[in-house]
Amino acid sequence: MKRYEIEVNGQVYQVSLKELPADTPMPAPTPASAPKPDASPAKAPTPAPTAGGTAVNAPLAGTVLAIKVTEGQAVKQGEILLVLEAMKMENEIVAPADGVVQAIQVAVGQSVESDQLLLKL
């Protein structure tokens, strides 16, 4: 087995590959794994606006490493709001839309659960 590190959409993954003999038959793809002709890449779900704005929830459980914004700060879509560490990887949580940070619900060093409210825009 050979180990490689690859980066996909800014995320780094470690993979192990096993070289097979050239005459090894390839299994036929199953309908669930076969790519569709016009399949577009999956997009993250758009956070639902709440009565007080847009909720930004944790995509996975982890620990808040850094908060890059302050309450009252205007942000643009795609701007980094905070950094969440999960499985020894740093995940940048970005603004899903333009807005103003209304409330920050977490603190640096705090553990959060998947889907927990992090902040509101």
Rank of each mutant, 00 (worst) to 15 (best):
L119D: 04
P25Q: 06
I93G: 06
V106A: 10
A55V: 05
K18V: 14
L17T: 08
Q77P: 01
T63P: 03
A39C: 00
V15A: 11
D23H: 12
K18I: 13
A86P: 03
T50S: 15
K68S: 14
Q11S: 14
L17A: 12
V15Y: 06
T46D: 08
I67K: 06
A95I: 03
N91F: 09
G53A: 07
Q73T: 05
P49S: 14
P25W: 02
P41T: 02
K120V: 15
A74G: 02
A32K: 11
M87W: 11
E79C: 04
V56M: 00
I93M: 07
I6Q: 05
S33D: 14
E5S: 15
K88P: 06
A34H: 10
L84W: 03
S33A: 14
P96N: 00
E7T: 15
G109Y: 12
I93N: 09
S111E: 15
P37S: 10
Q14F: 07
E85A: 03
Q14K: 13
Q105T: 10
Y13A: 09
V75D: 05
D23V: 11
P45R: 05
I80Q: 07
L65Q: 14
K43Y: 00
L82A: 03
T70S: 14
R3A: 07
V112H: 02
E7V: 14
V94E: 13
E5N: 13
E113A: 11
L84T: 05
A107Q: 15
A86R: 04
M87G: 11
D98Y: 08
G62K: 06
L82P: 01
G99E: 04
A42M: 11
V12P: 00
V69D: 09
D98W: 07
Q110Y: 02
K76G: 10
T54M: 09
K76L: 08
A44K: 06
A42G: 11
P35K: 03
K43Q: 13
